[in-house]
């Protein structure tokens, strides 16, 4: 039973398509990094998966059940703005969330709240630090005992220590209960340590979808003389050229020609390569150049 399947999903806001023709399958037990530039449709996709937003076209299903404007009982969602009742205390918030759920474990919530430095149960939500706020939000999300956890920018606004701690909470959950996690973030270096699957979205479409190791192994960064790119094989994703030297990101690259150095990219340079290429495509399309793919295959 796959935790999340999207079939040709699209979402249009008035005239603009936030997500377009997205199809993917999230395998069970994976920690998925949902990456892409601002406005790529990551949030919309997660909100659709949470049952908050109805797709304009296509269909999403969680654990085999199509989502129709309701959150699946096995899915928990953490919104980007944390969306907690700020005038309540932590204790009252936990009680409120318990009242709003059929399946609920207060023990689990207390367990998560007790992790790291621990959160004061009598503190007002509005007075918590950004890190503690995220910890509370994750705690009440886990109180639903989800099998799929959707985290929209869980690391935004957090200092490095809090980021590390939040990721540790998520990893503890994955280790304890085998929960599938989909999290969107810009912080690729942080994600690299915890994610084993990457889903790259840009302009509302899936660009890369696969196991991190597999995806990285499939790509090559080639560095060599700008004058001699003819011998390079493979699908060119993006290129940066400075003076006489070219740095090319290739998918399914052949052996490096003489004078070129081939290395496997890390997640960050891979994602940056894709994003830069798509930005260049976009700006060249805006300028109305005929050679849309002049710099990238």
């Amino acid at each position: 039973m796959t935790p999340l399947t999207a079939t040709a999903v699209g979402k249009r806001y008035r005239t603009r398509w936030a997500v377009r023709d997205c199809s993917f399958t999230i395998p069970e037990g994976k920690v998925v990094a949902l990456v892409g530039p601002n406005g790529a449709g990551k949030s919309t996709l997660l909100r659709m998966a949470a049952g908050l937003v109805r797709p304009t076209t296509g269909e999403l299903s969680a654990f085999g059940t199509p989502l129709r404007g309701r959150t699946h009982p096995d899915v928990s969602f953490l919104a980007q703005n944390r969306s907690l009742y700020r005038d309540l205390t932590v204790r009252e918030l936990v009680r409120a969330c318990a009242a709003m759920n059929d399946r609920w474990s207060t023990d689990r919530v207390h367990e998560v709240l007790g992790l790291l430095a621990g959160v004061d149960h009598d503190a007002k939500i509005g007075a918590l630090s950004a890190g503690a706020l995220t910890q509370v939000a994750i705690a009440v999300a886990l109180g639903r005992l989800p099998r799929l956890l959707l985290l929209d920018e869980p690391l935004s606004d957090l200092d490095p220590l809090a980021r590390d701690e939040v990721l540790r909470i998520v990893m503890t959950e994955v280790a304890d209960r085998g929960t599938t996690v989909v999290m969107s973030s810009h912080l690729l270096s942080d994600l690299r340590e915890v994610c084993d699957h990457v889903l790259l979205i840009d302009e509302g479409r899936v660009q890369v979808d696969g196991d991190v190791e597999g995806v990285l192994a499939e790509h090559r960064v080639l560095v060599g003389p700008a004058a001699d790119e003819a011998g390079v094989e493979g699908k060119l994703i993006g290129a940066t050229r400075s003076g006489r030297q070219s740095t090319l990101l290739l998918r399914g690259a052949g052996p490096a020609p003489a004078g070129w150095v081939s290395t496997e990219p890390d997640l960050e340079s891979l994602v940056v390569g894709y994003l830069r290429a798509s930005r260049e495509r976009r700006s060249s399309a805006q300028r109305g150049h005929a050679g849309r793919g002049a710099k990238s295959a």
Binding site: A50, G51, F77, Y85, M100, R103
Partner: peptide
């Protein structure tokens, strides 16, 4: 305005009951 409806909408209580 504050986005707190998202919290209620992603729990198991139905929107109508809420």
């Amino acid at each position: 305005e504050q986005g707190t409806h998202v919290l209620a909408f992603t729990q198991s209580v139905s929107r109508t009951r809420w």
